[in-house]
Computed example of a mutant assay.
Amino acid sequence: MLGLFKAYLNANLPQVQSFHPFFNEALAKMLKAGGKHFRAQLLLSVVNAKQPALVERALKIALAIELIHTYSLIHDDLPAMDNADFRRGELTLHKAYDETTAILVGDALNTEAFLLLSEAEFEDELKIKLVKSLAFNAGLKGMVIGQAMDCFFEDKKLDLQELEFLHTHKTAKLIAASLQMGALICKLDTKECEELYTLGLDIGLLFQINDDILDATSTKELAGKPTNHDTHKNSFVNLLSLEGALKAKDELSTKCFTSFQTLDKNLALSLKTLVQTYL
């Protein structure tokens, strides 16, 4: 799935006809810089396991999710937020170009994602469901309020329940939406869609805990972005200690892998392998 998606991404990079000297280059820069494409792979894994004939049509939906995720990273790195110099081993857009370009590229990727959903080769009823899922989980009731809380509560200690709320919204909901949207494409029943969404929330928190651990233990060269960067943030390491975060990771990992056993064999194997690859 990763190779298939990367080929599709590179063949369908967003661009616009204009006489701006570098905007198309900036649009593509962070998309071409790599990344795990984890959310796109989650969606495609569901479709490949349940309705493999729909994978080709699902690539556009996976790309929409990737555009949303990349926009969120570009804005997260801005001076007004994390003020980061590097992302995916490359200069962040406001460093490579300027802050105006970074803001507008993020805006463009965000809105382009919904244009892709509107153009997908699915019936209108399904496209509306896909738009609703992505907008809900990436927008006000998901990633946006999570990011707002992350920024506002810097240097203000949250308790564990509050921290989980923050990162469920900032990180986990878009991961859960990726599984949910794959399930919607395959027309799985309501119960299966809800189960995959709930599993996605757990996977999302698991990846956030792992990311916090990597920030505390990895190097900039290995991570492709600044490390030891969360000292002012509400991270699982800062709240629980490194030992506590490692324990929480193990417990949540066990919960996720137990949940995989309730899925059909092909989907369980696909998701298990994907999660193990990036932990």
Rank of each mutant, 00 (worst) to 15 (best):
Y71G: 01
I74S: 00
H75A: 02
H75S: 04
D77W: 00
L78F: 07
L78E: 09
D82Y: 02
D82W: 02
F86C: 02
R87I: 03
E99V: 08
T101Q: 00
A102K: 05
V105D: 00
E112L: 09
A113K: 04
L116E: 06
E119L: 12
A120P: 00
F122L: 11
D124P: 05
L126Y: 04
K132H: 12
A135M: 08
A135T: 11
L140A: 15
K141L: 15
G142M: 02
G142R: 06
V144Q: 10
F152A: 12
D155C: 11
K156E: 13
K156L: 09
K157T: 14
K157H: 13
D159H: 12
E164W: 03
F165N: 13
L166K: 06
H167N: 12
K170R: 08
K170T: 06
T171C: 05
T171R: 00
A172G: 07
K173G: 02
K173W: 02
L174E: 04
L174T: 12
I175N: 01
I175T: 09
A176C: 09
A177L: 07
L179N: 08
Q180G: 03
G182M: 05
L184W: 06
C186R: 09
L188G: 09
T190D: 15
E192T: 15
C193L: 14
E195I: 05
T198M: 12
L199H: 06
G200V: 01
